[in-house]
Design a protein around this nucleic acid. Sequence first.
DNA 1: TTAAGTGCAAAATCTTTGCAAATGT
DNA 2: ACATTTGCAAAGATTTTGCACTTAA
Lengths: 123, 123
Amino acid sequence: MKRRNTPSKRKILEILKEANSALSHDMIQARLDASIDRATIYRILNRFCEDGQAHKVIGGDGKQYFACGMERGGKHQHHHFHFKCLSCGKVECLENEIQIELPEGYVAEKYNALISGRCKSCT
Amino acid sequence: MKRRNTPSKRKILEILKEANSALSHDMIQARLDASIDRATIYRILNRFCEDGQAHKVIGGDGKQYFACGMERGGKHQHHHFHFKCLSCGKVECLENEIQIELPEGYVAEKYNALISGRCKSCT
DNA sequence: TTAAGTGCAAAATCTTTGCAAATGT
DNA sequence: ACATTTGCAAAGATTTTGCACTTAA
């Protein structure tokens, strides 16, 4: 499946790059001047994740947050923690790598690690 | 707000204790012989979390999973990782404690850490 | 007795899907 | 040309809420 370079994709990738945090669907929609359909936004974001241009974290609220800050060369570099501020709502990627030894016979595939609390600006 | 000891609460707590894994709402409902209303189950589970008798993890699927295995004396002992098997769907509490140094000025409140993959039985 | 808990129905969220029309290559 | 992408509408899935009725203490 060959990917196309559409205006919508460019805009959304731009927004993800400018934000130095992970964004939920509605945060992205809020930053769009012209409106792109909800379904289209989700589809674009999911394609970004498939292609390794972005990654997804599930918030403590069960919502999906997308970020493209920690990918290098189209591949997600390492598995890291995320931090969600309960006050301002910002979701950031932390540098801390997840290092954990799983029990014998367990194989890890995906990581979803999110800590909630107060960020520096909100303390 | 004084809590009461109802049959529904007892049944659900029983189920959580017997399962050596975290259960989602529908998993719990499936294990109930007599049916308890959906809303009631959610309310009971949320009360358990408020009271420290259970804790909640958000799965990579955005669903809520509840467990009461790691609490001692009504208090959640430590923050730990969870593991969800993508094959059999089981969500387990891992012993590994989450130890992470947050950036200056950040305060942690809640932890949600889940690794997905294959468990021992499914490899 | 009376505050807490329950059931039912309905609402609120968030996300995905089907399909026809539009568009990139 | 033709497969990919989009918009619209509708469906799906999960969780919460309002309200009257029931029940534990």
